[in-house]
Design a binder for these strands. Structure first.
Lengths: 158, 158
DNA sequence: CCTCAGTCGTTGACACGTGAATCGTACGGG
DNA sequence: CCCGTACGATTCACGTGTCAACGACTGAGG
């Protein structure tokens, strides 16, 4: 027998809880994104970009500013914007103040797509996620997420 | 004013809880997979395939049997096995009983990679996920996941 | 000025995921 | 025995993600 100061690996139950949790909420996310896509043709990434742009001054943002805001790699954003531009959701124009950069502008069509998608999307979140849980369970999830963020030293706002 | 029988969209707090939860545990998953990859060069997908194969009779399985077991699309598995085969983790051989099919066999190297990765992987799950939470919080997560699965009519084992 | 380190955005190579089409084989019914 | 349908596995086209390398440009210093 060893003298475990502290168990180094999860118990069977802890491991089962981990798998159940992560697999379940992966399905939840997929369902919500699938509904968004069926309703409006937008992916989760599209929605996130459109949300940020529609809240921005002049419905436009510098590309790396946008990337920082939604916490994406710049290369990821670049590729995504290329696909969104092909579909007419955004437009890229050269930036006056800094010839290296570019401004990402929300098009009329992009704004329309975002607005018509919002309500059904929120409903999907309610149907699939919120309504699955009691208010106490939801509060517990929020607390667990907050504790996890502290544990990982996320949100070091200072 | 309307007469909402039942709110159709989430409240601000519910929406915030949803976003906090999903974003946090996405980061948790990414951290655990990054540690797995750093420790052993395996991705989460590799690990799942190797786990299933190492528990299978003769360390081998029919391809669609394996796909069903780990709940993957067959095309996804096919592509993934191609990459794993290039790296020598698995081998595919024609199937005796059914010339359409193929058997996926765990190689010695695959078995070795799986075994050396398991302990560090479990430790990562403990460090990053389990140790972030109190036992009560972990139980709450498990209950919330179970409730969600019922809500979505998953696990209809009948 | 001019140099040069650093930033902006894109690109390339790759891993990974989905759904539709494909191709060969299996097998039950004429 | 052959035919048509069903099935196993792969392939294709595409969307999505990472990281490293790149070319264009900026801006602080000599």
């Amino acid at each position: 027998m060893d003298h475990p100061r502290r168990r180094q690996v999860p118990t069977h139950d802890e491991l089962a809880a981990w798998r159940l949790h992560i697999e379940t909420f992966e399905i939840v996310r997929a369902r919500i994104e699938a509904r968004l896509h069926d309703d409006s043709g937008l992916s989760g990434g599209d929605y996130r970009v459109l949300l940020a742009l529609s809240e921005a001054d002049g419905r436009a943002m510098r590309s790396s500013e946008l990337a920082a805001h939604i916490e994406w790699e710049r290369s990821r954003l670049s590729g995504h914007l290329g696909r969104m531009e092909r579909r007419g959701l955004v437009r890229r124009e050269p930036c006056a103040e800094d010839a290296r950069g570019s401004r990402v502008v929300l098009t009329e069509e992009g704004a329309r797509a975002f607005h018509t998608s919002t309500l059904p999307h929120l409903r999907a979140i309610k149907d699939v996620f919120v309504d699955a849980l009691t208010p106490e369970q939801l509060a517990h999830l929020r607390d667990a997420a907050a504790a996890t963020r502290r544990h990982l030293h996320l949100d070091e706002r200072s």
